[in-house]
Every structure is written in C-alpha cells, then in structure tokens.
C-alpha cells in the first residue's frame, strides 16, 4: 500500500499490480544511484525494454 495515500476509507488493493521483480529493482536502484552521483566516469546507458539491438552482430549463444 502506498505510504503517502491518505483516504477516509480503506482502499481495495494493498499492492500495486505493477510491482517490479527483484532484478528490475536492483537495476533501478543502480540507475538512481548513478544518476545521483552523475559526472565524470559515473555515466550509464538506461536499460529499457524498447531498447533492443536488432542488428546482425549478436554472437551465437
């Protein structure tokens, strides 16, 4: 349940349906921390679902 939502009744759902899996949380934490310390050698490329390299150069797995 949101820690910040204030209501004069009990809301139906305690957890967001879009709760993220643990691995996404770690990635988010990393990007958040890197953004907080951004500068010089602290730089990154955002991991996004739509970011998929469809080129021919992926090595065979």
């Amino acid at each position: 349940m949101s820690k910040h939502l204030k209501a004069n009744f009990k809301v139906k759902r305690k957890k967001s349906s879009s709760s993220k899996p643990e691995k996404d949380k770690v990635a988010e934490k990393f990007e958040r921390e890197a953004l907080r310390h951004l500068g010089g050698s602290i730089a990154f490329v955002m991991k996004r679902k739509e970011f998929v390299w469809t080129g021919e150069e992926k090595s065979d797995e």
Partner: peptide, 14 residues
C-alpha cells in the same frame, strides 16, 4: 553501446 548492452554488459559511455 548497442552490442555491449545486447550481451548483458553495461557500457560506460564516457
């Protein structure tokens, strides 16, 4: 940048 991401490694783009 793209092929490094694609291999599951973070590229640091100085």
């Amino acid at each position: 940048v793209k092929i490094t991401m694609d291999h599951g490694i973070r590229p640091i783009p100085n």
